[in-house]
Amino acid sequence: MTDGDLDATDPRTLPGFFDALADGKLLGGVCTDCGQVLLPPRPACYACGSRAVDVEPQSREGTVFSYTEVHTPPPAFAADAPYTVAVVELADGGRLLGRVAADYSDVAIGDSVELTVHEPTAAEREVALDYETDWPVHIFEPR
């Protein structure tokens, strides 16, 4: 097993992934053996076990695969509720969970959305762990 030198600049680590996301780049791992897309990237493919994982930019466009609305939020997000959350199937094949900037009643399975990124708000920084403080937050916008 060889992975080379994983450090915090490598997008197969969370700091590396979120640094790229802060610049508007959504990076995915792509297994060179079976093609599985891994969001966020990581050193090994869960589908086939291979460690031959490339890191490639992913389309930020996708469609809603499933969605709901959170009425009973964790305390950290109480001020935001109710809010819409979805699993989105991205155009390059990966799936990612995130908030949707739309009312629940205005969303349907199959709707087109685009991933956008913002700097963490003061409230989001408040509940972040030290190492997460500057990580951007993603949200899907209807298209």
Binding site: L39, P40, T68, E69, V70, T72, P73, P74, A76, F77, D80, Y83, V85, L96, L97, G98, R99, E124, E132, W135, V137, H138
Partner: peptide
């Protein structure tokens, strides 16, 4: 990804 999006067990 999931916790930072405000997900809960019911959702």
């Amino acid at each position: 990804i999931e916790q930072r999006s405000g997900i809960t067990a019911p959702s």
